[in-house]
């Protein structure tokens, strides 16, 4: 009986481990977010890496997700942990054409 319960617990845990939180890297070289579209799960983290030679930023204008991570100098990194599902845009504070679309799924 004990062995049977233990096996059942193992079976349940396998999919949980498969969905462990991930870190998604977004770069900024040549004033372009790469990738330009990102799908992530609740609990994941997005790491913004300024691998460009000029200042950039991470600004979200979307209601309920809006934030500003401040000026990001070359070689600096910022992280954003995704805690709720939804879709939002990321814009560079300095460069209007830099846009990243993020979809957060449960």
């Amino acid at each position: 009986m004990f062995m049977r319960l233990a096996l059942a617990a193992l079976v349940v845990q396998i999919p949980v481990l498969a969905e462990a939180a991930e870190t998604h890297v977004v770069t900024m070289a040549a004033s372009v977010y790469h990738p330009a579209n990102l799908t992530a799960r609740v609990g994941d983290t997005v790491r913004f890496v300024n691998d460009d030679g000029t200042d950039h930023g991470v600004f979200v204008p979307t209601v309920d997700f809006a934030l500003d991570l401040g000026t990001q100098k070359p070689e600096e990194e910022r992280e954003l942990t995704l805690l709720k599902p939804g879709t939002f845009d990321v814009e560079c504070t300095f460069h209007e054409h830099m846009i990243l679309k993020v979809e957060v799924v449960p």
Binding site: P61, D68, G70
Partner: peptide, 14 residues
């Protein structure tokens, strides 16, 4: 009131 922006680096809510 149409938006609320978290400004983490300045520890302000706008």
């Amino acid at each position: 009131l149409y938006n609320q922006v978290d400004r983490a680096d300045r520890k302000r809510v706008r």
